[in-house]
Design a protein around this nucleic acid. Structure first.
Length: 445
RNA sequence: GGUUCCUUAGCCAAGUUGGUAAGGCAAUUGACUGCAACUCAAUGAGCAUCGGUUCAAAUCCGGUAGGAACCUCCA
C-alpha cells in the first residue's frame, strides 16, 4: 500500500518510504509539564497516536518517541508558586498527561524521555557543537551560531533578512546575532546542573536533538511531528543543530498538526480561554472528544463547539449501539466472535494512507455501521456477515483509537437476555421492562 | 511590515495529475414499534465574489472581499 504524507519540508504530498524496510521511527514533541493539559495539547497526542496505530496495523514495526520537557522557566516559576520542588511538580503533571492521553484513547509511546534524564548527553552534544564552531560561549551561556547554517529557515519558509528587520526579534547584546538561540543558560535560580561553562540548564531546542540522537542509532528518523507553531523557531532550530552535527535535517518527513479553537478563537494561555482536556473528557467522554478531533483532517483547524460535540456524541452512541448489538447476537448464538474477516477495511486503509485522511476513513466506518444495522434488522440473521462486520468495527476502532467496548456475556447474562425475549414475546411487559433495564445497566443492550 | 493558509448545504466536513459535488449532525416525510431508546428509507448545495485559461474548473491563473495562524512561551 502506498502511504503518502504532506511533508512540511517540501510543502507537498510525498510518497512515504521508510529508512529501513518494514520499520518506522517517529518522534513527536511533547509537552512542557507545569499544568494540566488543555484540549489543544491532545491534538498531536491523538493525531500521531492514530498514525502510529495505522502504521502498526498495516505491518510496520513502529518506534514512537515523545518527550516531556521537565526543565523550563515556567516550571521553575510554577514550582516556586506552589512551594514544591521542580521534580514533584513535573512528576505530577507527567502522570496527569499520561492519564488524560489514555482517557482520550492514545497508547503510551514506546519511549517517553525526560530532559532531566538527558542532561549529560545534552552537555556532550553542546560541547561538540562548540568544537565545531557552530556554538559559542559567552559569560556562562552557550548560543548556537545560526550563521553557520546555509539554509536556515527552510522549513518555515522564513527569510533571515525579514526576521532581522522584524521588530519583534529580541535584543540580547550577548549574542552575535539576534537569530542565535540559547543552548545552555547560566542560572542560579531553580534547578541547575554543573557544566563546563558553569552552573546552568539546557535551552529548549537541544533536548529533542539529543533524544533522537541517543535513541535512534541512525541520528536520522522517518517522521518528526508536532504542532504547527513549533515549526518556527523550535523545529527550525532542531534542524540547524542537526545540520551542524550530522549534515541532515533530523527527519525525512516533517508533519505538523493544526490547532483546536474554541468559538473560532485560538486557545492560548495568554488569551486565557484554555479548556482543560480532563474537564471535557469527564463531561463528554474520551471517544467523543477524540472523534471531534478525528472528524477533521489533521492539517485543518478544529473548532470545538456545542454543535460539533453533540454531533460526535450522536455518532459515538450509534457506533456503540451497533457494536454491542452485534456482540450480543454473536454471543447468544455461541459464535466465535473473533473469527470474522474485515469488510470495507480496504477503502478505510486507503483513506488513512492518504496523508491520514481520517474524515474519509470515518465515512467507511459509517458505511460499516449502516450495513450492520441493516443486517441486525433482518428477521433471519446472517451470523457470518455479522462476524465479519464485528471484526471490521473492532479493527477500525483500534486504528482510530476509539475506545468502544462490548460486554462479554456470562451464561447468566445469556439466560437473562433469553428470559427478556420470552417474557416480551408473552407480552409480560412489566417483567420484560425490568429485565431490559437490568440488561441496559449491564451495558449488554 | 514579512511568511503561510483558509472561504464547499442550517452546522461539521471530504474532495487539486481539471470531467458535471463523499460522509456525518440537525430538519422534514414515511416505515418499524406494547412503551422508550435504537434502527431503516427518502428529501437539500453547483463550491465567498469578479474575471481569465479550457471542449470542460470547487479544482489552474489573476483581481476583490472576509477570516486565521506564525514571525514572542505555547500543541
Amino acid at each position: 500500500m502506498d502511504i503518502k504524507f504532506y511533508n512540511s519540508l517540501s510543502n507537498s504530498v510525498e510518497l512515504f518510504k521508510p529508512l529501513h524496510e518494514g520499520k518506522v521511527s517517529m518522534y513527536v514533541c511533547g509537552p512542557t509539564v507545569y499544568n494540566y493539559p488543555h484540549i489543544g495539547n491532545m491534538r498531536p497526542v491523538v493525531v500521531f497516536d492514530t498514525l502510529r496505530r495505522f502504521l502498526t496495523y498495516v505491518g510496520y514495526d513502529v518506534t514512537y518517541v515523545s518527550n516531556f520537557t521537565d526543565v523550563d522557566d515556567k516550571i521553575i516559576n510554577e514550582s516556586i508558586k506552589e512551594n514544591k520542588t521542580e521534580k514533584e511538580l513535573t512528576e505530577f503533571y507527567i502522570d496527569q498527561f499520561k492519564k488524560t492521553s489514555a482517557e482520550i484513547g492514545s497508547l503510551l509511546p514506546n519511549v517517553t524521555p525526560k530532559v532531566t534524564e538527558y542532561i549529560k548527553a545534552i552537555i556532550t552534544y553542546i560541547q561538540k557543537l562548540v568544537e565545531l564552531e557552530a556554538a559559542y560561549v559567552v559569560d556562562g551561556d552557550v548560543y548556537f551560531r545560526v550563521s553557520k547554517i546555509q539554509d536556515y529557515g527552510s522549513l518555515s519558509g522564513i527569510n533571515i533578512n525579514d526576521l532581522l528587520v522584524g521588530a519583534r526579534v529580541e535584543e540580547n547584546i550577548k549574542k552575535e546575532s539576534p537569530l542565535d538561540f540559547a543552548l545552555w543558560k547560566r542560572t542560579s535560580i531553580g534547578v541547575n546542573w554543573d557544566s563546563p561553562w558553569g552552573k546552568g540548564r539546557p535551552g529548549w531546542h537541544t533536548e529533542c536533538c539529543v533524544m533522537i540522537d541517543t535513541i535512534f542509532p541512525d541520528h536520522f528518523i522517518d517522521i518528526h511531528g508536532g504542532g504547527y507553531d513549533l515549526k518556527f523557531p523550535h523545529h527550525e532550530n532542531e534542524i540547524a543543530q542537526a545540520e551542524a552535527m550530522h549534515h541532515n535535517k533530523i527527519a525525512r518527513y516533517w508533519l505538523h498538526n493544526a490547532f483546536i479553537n474554541f468559538g473560532n478563537e485560538k486557545m492560548s494561555k495568554s488569551v486565557g480561554n484554555v479548556i482543560l482536556a480532563k474537564d471535557l473528557i469527564e463531561k463528554y467522554g474520551g471517544p467523543t472528544c477524540r472523534l471531534v478531533i478525528l472528524n477533521t483532517h489533521y492539517r485543518q483547524p478544529v473548532n470545538f463547539t456545542d454543535e460539533t460535540i453533540s454531533a460526535a456524541t450522536q455518532e459515538v452512541n450509534k457506533m456503540t449501539s451497533a457494536y454491542r448489538q452485534i456482540a450480543l447476537q454473536l454471543q447468544i448464538n455461541n459464535v466465535d466472535i473473533n473469527q470474522g474477516k474485515p469488510e470495507y477495511i480496504e477503502k478505510f486503509l486507503l483513506a488513512m494512507a492518504d496523508d491520514l485522511n481520517t474524515a474519509n476513513a470515518l465515512a467507511e466506518l459509517y458505511v460499516t455501521i449502516k450495513d450492520a444495522n441493516q443486517n441486525l434488522r433482518n428477521k433471519e440473521i446472517n451470523l457470518q456477515k455479522l462476524t465479519n462486520l464485528f471484526k471490521t468495527l473492532t479493527d477500525m476502532f483500534y486504528i482510530l483509537g476509539l475506545n468502544i467496548t462490548y460486554k462479554k456475556l456470562s451464561d447468566d447474562d445469556k439466560l437473562l437476555y433469553k428470559k427478556y425475549l420470552s417474557t416480551k414475546a408473552d407480552k409480560q411487559f412489566d417483567v420484560s421492562d425490568k429485565l431490559r433495564s437490568i440488561l441496559m445497566e449491564k451495558e449488554i443492550l
